[in-house]
């Protein structure tokens, strides 16, 4: 008799157990697609800006930091801007007084995207080596030309 009572009590407890508990080991995965801005910060010598500090300003308040963070050992940093704040996001990467501010346009479109930005500090990244040589050469030749012009006493004619 007592054995029958115990079994009955167990059966009743099983029936009264909340339904959710029966899913204790299940997994719920939800996903959203977000726009991510990925930075890669390097010095002009090519070294990564490891540990550089990143400050992000949202389009609606360009004076107060919206988010701050630190680059990894390879000078990389990723963050997801708030999709509710479309416009121009200002991102500053700074280390030891060196740094650069870049501006990334985040549209109001619902289409998510990954925006990759190369932050190269103290360099003329958009130029090729040949362009750099020509540009530098013009300045150097300008200086040499000035020296040659004034060396021959031409300055006296214009003074």
């Amino acid at each position: 008799m007592p054995m029958r009572l115990v079994l009955l009590a167990l059966w009743g407890a099983l029936l009264l157990m909340p339904a959710g508990a029966s899913y204790a080991h299940s997994v719920s995965v939800e996903h959203t697609l977000e726009t991510v801005i990925a930075l890669a910060a390097t010095y002009d010598s090519g070294e990564p800006m490891a540990g550089a500090q990143v400050t992000v300003y949202a389009p609606n308040d360009p004076t107060t930091a919206w988010h701050t963070g630190t680059c990894d050992e390879m000078g990389r940093y990723r963050f997801a801007p708030d999709p509710a704040l479309p416009g121009t996001w200002t991102i500053q990467v700074r280390q030891a007084g060196h740094g650069k501010t870049i501006y990334v346009e985040v549209g109001s479109s619902t289409t998510p995207a990954t925006s990759a930005a190369l932050v190269q500090v103290g360099s003329a990244a958009p130029y090729t080596l040949l362009q750099l040589i020509v540009m530098g050469g013009t300045v150097v030749w300008g200086c040499i030309g000035t020296a040659l012009f004034l060396r021959g006493g031409a300055a006296d004619a214009y003074s």
Binding site: V139, V140, C143, I144, T146, A147, L148, L150, A155, D156
Partner: peptide, 17 residues
């Protein structure tokens, strides 16, 4: 004042490079 301008121009190039 003009005498040292050529030298200044050349050293400006050195500083630039």
């Amino acid at each position: 004042p003009h005498a040292m301008v050529p030298r200044a121009a050349l050293l400006t190039a050195v500083f630039f490079v």
